[in-house]
Design a protein around this nucleic acid. Structure first.
Lengths: 137, 137
DNA sequence: ACTGTGTTATATTATGAATATAACAGATAT
DNA sequence: ATATCTGTTATATTCATAATATAACACAGT
């Protein structure tokens, strides 16, 4: 699994990190029961502060993606009951689809995009393995 | 068309405003050629600063939703060529779908959600007209 | 004892959101 | 012409938060 941080992005580092880990889980680059690096180790590898990683981990824990164990560190443990993911998805989707509708993207095109992305996640890594500055996790 | 700002949200006010206007256009609550209130008027109605509204308008102009005319004010004018909306959609969609996949939401369920939201936009207002603290625009 | 976990606390710096005035150029109406 | 309304730009301040830097604690493993 790879992590790539864009330091020029307007998106906060801990958000980028959180998102990439979620994508990594969805792409099955890292699986249930496996553990992420410690907050200090990953912070060193990326070149950021420990607390920034800690914040990402804490959020992932709260959202039901991680279980934080003192012994094994941060292990992937999905809890679908933590919150209503379907409801959250609809909220996020509403704005994105509104943008698309304004720009004349059809419902069929959106369905194609959905299938395309789902396909990427199913067959292993959606990211090419040439590693362009990405941090191995 | 209605605008509702959540002052307790972590989302910036000008982003909320921008999103609601995009949703309003998609829902055809406000249509091409019609004009939005002036930055000062809308700011007064909502109870926020003029510059906050101005920032939302400037972004909408840059993204190809608005044309700012000194005579008529801010009029809705969609320009699908301003940027690649389809590419932007895929970027945003990737994280959302990753979250859904982790939480065991199937591809079919996502398709249903898409159709549901598209249906909301087609038949007029997706927002009920009971007006719970929303600002008429 | 020592090291490595997550966790918490405190403080500082930097960035950006939101506000408050103020002014300008152009268009409209009285 | 005078006044008023546009968007636009400029400057400054306040406030929230992201990111950093240390430091310390409780717990588990070697």
């Amino acid at each position: 699994m790879f992590v790539e941080i864009d330091f020029n992005s307007e998106e906060a580092i801990y958000i980028q990190l959180r998102n990439q880990i979620v994508i990594g889980i969805a792409a099955e680059e890292i699986q249930e029961g496996e553990s992420l690096p410690s907050v200090r180790e990953l912070a060193d590898n990326i070149g950021i502060n420990m607390h920034t990683v800690n914040k990402a981990y804490s959020i992932l824990k709260q959202e039901g993606y991680l279980q934080l164990d003192r012994r094994k560190g941060a292990i992937i443990a999905i809890d679908p009951e933590k919150y209503d993911a379907k409801l959250a998805m609809m909220e996020d989707m509403r704005v994105i689809l509104a943008e698309g509708i304004c720009k004349d993207i059809t419902c069929e095109e959106v369905h194609q995009i959905i299938d395309l992305i789902f396909g990427e996640f199913k067959k292993g890594s959606p990211i090419d393995n040439h590693n362009g500055g990405k941090i191995n996790v």
